[in-house]
């Protein structure tokens, strides 16, 4: 923990209001023109100044992949680590200095394939980091192999006859890993993405956001079947706490339970039926959130779950505080349980 610089630090909110441009680094952004990552970067840079956290207290950590170049473009502290390991580095950063706000930027390959194990454990431990998983369902940086979220049968350079691996559902994985905050948003919907980012930033504990992202070069239209302008209102439903699941261009459709399966009903928007499924992001159990994560038509976006519990660093520091009740005595520690004296 770095205490040397305390006096130099600006308290949240006490300095001049920062702007989005203050969060832009001097490095040229090197994603392919039209890549979904640009929109996400811009959304993040817009949200940052609204959080009231001085930029020296913000750290972006990433692994390897197109999305993992992200930290270089943020004028904060940043760490571009190795493939799949961003969450391990972020865990160390946050536990070392809980004053910092730590963000992790990862992709479907980085976060769910090579780094899948770390995702499970960071979420179950409730490491207080905000994970942005850019899901473009392809390996971009290595030029177009299928990823763990590629749809079954997808033809890529490494699967000329179609993939034979069933894809993972990132939201379901996060929920199964006991994540407290789980959300999904689309790269093109900047305003909504901004809202979700803000909520994630304010959530105490692990926050996991799957961002449906387009890779113009290797998987263009990755999410068009559900997220393109012309279909999204009918193919996606925004879940909101305490609200029924209503969607459609004219808000004329809803989701209700039929046994253990979702069922879409159409109705007069002026008089929605009373038996529509209501969302509850605070439900103590993840059952409803998991149900929503599994819906294919419509696909849910928004905040699936927002439940707080003690974070890893709180619990770690709590034990240390408790242990410190017995004043540390290095000499006593060095002596151990038993000593003897050899006389001169």
């Amino acid at each position: 923990m770095d205490r040397d610089h305390d006096e130099l630090q600006t308290l949240p909110g006490s300095g001049p209001m920062l702007q989005a441009k203050d969060f832009k680094s001097d490095q040229m952004v090197r994603w392919c023109p039209g890549c979904g990552d640009f929109a996400i970067l811009s959304a993040v840079q817009k949200v940052m100044p609204t959080l009231g956290i001085p930029k020296e207290k913000i750290v972006f950590v990433s692994g390897i992949g197109c999305s993992s170049r992200f930290p270089y473009y943020m004028n904060t502290f940043g760490f571009h680590s190795i493939h799949g390991r961003a969450l391990t580095v972020a865990t160390g950063v946050k536990c070392a200095n809980p004053d910092l706000q730590v963000w992790v930027v990862t992709g479907d390959g980085d976060g769910l394939s090579i780094g899948g194990n770390h995702l499970l454990h960071a979420l179950r431990r409730n490491v207080d980091v905000k994970v942005l998983l850019f899901n473009n369902r392809i390996y971009g940086l290595t030029k177009g192999q299928y990823s763990p979220t590629s749809e079954l049968g997808k033809k890529t350079k490494s699967s000329p006859m179609g993939t034979i691996d069933v894809p993972l559902n990132p939201i379901a994985v996060a929920l199964a890993s006991e994540a407290g905050f789980v959300a999904r948003a689309v790269d093109t919907d900047l305003a909504f993405l901004g809202e979700i980012l803000t909520r994630a930033a304010k959530h105490k504990g692990s926050a996991f956001i799957e961002i449906l992202q387009n890779c113009v070069v290797f998987n263009d239209g990755a999410w068009d079947p559900v997220a393109s302008k012309d279909v999204r209102d009918d193919r996606m439903v925004r879940v909101a706490h305490g609200k029924p699941l209503i969607f459609g261009k004219n808000k004329e459709k809803g989701v209700r339970l039929n046994g253990l399966e979702p069922e879409v009903v159409t109705f007069d928007p002026a008089a929605p039926p009373r038996d529509l499924l209501m969302h509850d992001e605070k439900a103590p159990s993840a059952t409803l959130a998991t149900f929503l994560s599994r819906m294919g038509d419509p696909v849910a976006q928004g905040i699936f779950r927002a439940v707080e519990r003690p974070t890893l660093h709180e619990l770690m520091d709590g034990q240390i505080e408790q242990a410190k009740a017995a004043a540390p005595d290095l000499q006593k520690l060095l002596k151990g349980p038993e000593t003897w004296t050899v006389a001169a």
């Binding site: 923990m1 770095d2 750290v59 950590v61 760490f79 680590s81 390991r85 969450l87 391990t88 580095v89 972020a90 865990t91 160390g92 950063v93 946050k94 536990c95 070392a96 200095n97 910092l100 194990n117 770390h118 499970l120 454990h121 770690m316 240390i320 242990a323 410190k324 009740a325 017995a326 004043a327 540390p328 290095l330 520690l333």
Partner: peptide, 25 residues
């Protein structure tokens, strides 16, 4: 009581990754 933070990681890589993060911080 000496402030030591021990972290039993999920694997060897996370053990060193977290240590690199802690060092960075």
């Amino acid at each position: 009581s000496f402030g030591v933070k021990t972290f039993q990681a999920e694997d060897e890589i996370a053990a060193i990754g977290s240590s690199i993060g802690a060092s960075f911080a």
